[in-house]
Amino acid sequence: MPVRALLNDPDELVAEALDGFARSHPGLVRANADPAYLIRAEPADKVALVSGGGSGHEPLHTGFVGTGMLDVAVPGAVFASPTAYQVRAAIRAADRGRGVLLVVKNYTGDLLNFGIAAELAAEEGIETRIALVDDDLATESEDGPGRRGTAAVLAVEKICGAAAERGADLEQLAELAARITTSARTLALATAACTHPGESRPSFELEVDEVEFGVGIHGEHGIGRRPYGSARELTAALADPVLESLGLTGGEEVLAIVNGLGATHGLELATVARELHEHLAARGIRIARSLVGSYVTALDMRGCSVTLLRLDPELAELWDAPVRTPALTW
């Protein structure tokens, strides 16, 4: 049975979804059609936060536009960076004269286009800083592009968004973003690949007794195949390298993000969350804050990522601060 998506025309999918999304949250956000971006309905007098990237990761980033998170989100085509022209328009729309923090996941195309947009904005007198997010342990290497940016971007947007609402300046926000990124690592696995809109076959096939380990969020292969196992075994396989990389030890507190990759049921994610609590508790590490759900997705990929962020009182307090966006509200 081929995969069938609900769409009109694959080439219009991103634009039509942006329109539908904005119409669904009229009090919070509005859409600009060309160049495409989503902006919060009521601008605030503060440093602006702009993020974006390829589409197909919803609710990232459009779902996080609103009070306490992003001012503008810029969607590219599916799994492709937004253009420099789009990002420049987003920066112009977001800036309130206090500068703009650009939250960028570590991919070549995103860095190039956000970097160019930042240079063009500087010529117009708009100050920007790029907060590079690179949390994906699967692609850690000495040379090459390094760790990809995945679910930790959500923590950067939430925590820096809260700090911006309280009046932090651009430099302070850039430092805060760097501290969060340094303190967070992610690892993911897939039990089934995703299918690009308009296509009928997934990007790869898995046997029933294996999982794709170390996947990113673009439907690509991971770093290897591992045997399929229980939620307990698979959760430990994701958590252990993250614990080791962060050097987390007994007595520390973390924010845990158990993130569905697009087609993973809430029951499964809650089970993984339970196993993560058990696994960390056995090592004396307390999950002081958590977020469980599908927030940083790869179309309809099945599987999940586990992100741990080492918490200190300041980060925890900013995480708790009020937020009101289409996808995250408390």
Binding site: T83, Y85, Q86, L112, N113
Partner: peptide, 17 residues
Amino acid sequence: SEAFLNTGGTSGPLFGM
């Protein structure tokens, strides 16, 4: 330049600049 800066991929923005 503006047309290339509004193009996807990596060669588009480089040609734009």
